[in-house]
Amino acid sequence: MGRRRKMRDLVFKVLFQSEFREDEIDEILKELLSKENSDSLKADVERYVANIKEKKKLIDEKISSCLENWELDRLSTVDKCLLRLGTYELLYEADVPIEVTLDEMIELAKKYGTEDSGRFVNGVLDKIAKTYAPAEKFLL
Rank of each mutant, 00 (worst) to 15 (best):
V96A: 07
G2A: 12
V121Y: 00
R74K: 15
K35G: 11
C66L: 05
K111V: 06
V100R: 10
A133Q: 01
D79F: 02
R3P: 01
E107L: 14
L139A: 09
I59A: 06
I128G: 00
K62R: 13
E136L: 13
D73I: 06
V45W: 02
I98Q: 03
E107T: 10
G118N: 05
S38T: 05
D60L: 11
I52R: 05
I63M: 00
S18K: 14
D60F: 01
D103P: 00
K30S: 13
K130Y: 07
Q17I: 04
L72I: 15
M7R: 11
E115K: 11
I52H: 02
G118L: 02
R74M: 10
R5S: 11
V78T: 15
Q17E: 15
L41F: 00
A109W: 03
D73W: 08
D116G: 04
E19N: 08
L125P: 00
L32S: 09
F16A: 11
V124R: 03
E99D: 13
T101A: 09
N51K: 12
K62W: 03
L15W: 04
S18W: 05
Q17Y: 09
R8L: 12
D9R: 15
S40P: 01
A109S: 13
F138S: 12
L72R: 08
T77A: 13
R84G: 00
N37C: 03
E61C: 07
E93A: 15
T87M: 07
Q17C: 08
D126T: 15
K80F: 07
A109Q: 02
L108Y: 01
C81S: 14
E99N: 05
L90I: 04
V11N: 06
S76A: 11
K80L: 14
R21F: 13
S18R: 14
S117T: 10
G113A: 04
L83D: 01
V11S: 02
E27G: 12
L125C: 10
L83R: 00
L32G: 09
R74P: 00
L10D: 04
L29K: 13
T101N: 04
G113D: 00
K111E: 15
T114Y: 11
I128L: 05
D60T: 07
L41T: 09
Y92C: 02
L75D: 09
R21V: 08
L72M: 06
E54T: 14
K30H: 14
R21P: 01
E89N: 13
I106Y: 07
K55R: 15
L108C: 02
K127H: 04
A133V: 07
R47A: 10
L41Y: 04
D116H: 06
K57Q: 15
V78D: 03
R4L: 12
L75R: 08
I98Y: 08
E36Q: 12
R84P: 01
K53W: 08
Y132F: 15
L108P: 02
R84K: 14
L15D: 02
D44V: 07
E136D: 08
E24H: 08
S34E: 12
F120M: 04
L91F: 09
K6S: 08
G123M: 01
G86Y: 01
E93N: 11
E22V: 13
R47E: 09
K56Q: 14
S117F: 02
P134N: 11
D9E: 15
S40Q: 09
L15R: 06
A133I: 05
D39L: 12
L29E: 10
E104N: 13
F20D: 05
G118C: 01
V45Y: 02
K30I: 03
T87W: 01
